[in-house]
């Protein structure tokens, strides 16, 4: 199904939106992203992803009146939709299944010292 693929960054944002529920918006997501992954992203980049995810139907949003901290400007709060939940669940399933299929040897092979001995 075209348009419903999740990019890596999109998936992260989608997950973080879930984590932060019910207070997921641009700044909080950016902060959590930095805390959890150490990645810095421009607000514009975050919003770009958020808008895309909303268009795909994985997120919904509502405007909340702002506080003094924001100079009185509104906040756009995002939350995951049912379709969004399905999408991350699917993605997790896919990863799990792929993970399980990796042969034991391939992982062992990654252990350098083991092979030498």
């Amino acid at each position: 199904m075209k348009g419903t693929q999740l990019g890596e960054f999109e998936e992260l944002i989608l997950l973080l939106t879930g984590v932060l529920y019910p207070d997921a918006y641009g700044v909080s997501i950016a902060r959590e992203l930095e805390n959890q992954t150490g990645r810095k992203a421009a607000i514009g980049a975050i919003h770009s992803a958020l808008v895309r995810l909303e268009e795909k139907g994985f997120l919904k949003s509502e405007l909340q009146s702002g506080s003094g901290k924001r100079g009185g400007r509104p906040k756009k709060i995002f939350s995951i939709t049912a379709a969004g939940k399905t999408a991350i669940a699917k993605s997790k399933e896919l990863r799990n299944s792929l993970w399980d299929q990796i042969p034991e040897l391939a992982l062992k092979g990654l252990n350098y010292s083991y092979v030498i001995r």
């Binding site: 918006y25 641009g26 700044v27 950016a30 607000i43 919003h47 405007l63 702002g66 901290k69 924001r70 100079g71 400007r73 509104p74 906040k75 756009k76």
Partner: peptide, 14 residues
């Protein structure tokens, strides 16, 4: 524009 400005403003303080 409004809520983007809001986001920027908030982060700006930090």
């Amino acid at each position: 524009v409004e809520y983007l400005q809001g986001d920027l403003y908030e982060q700006f303080q930090a």
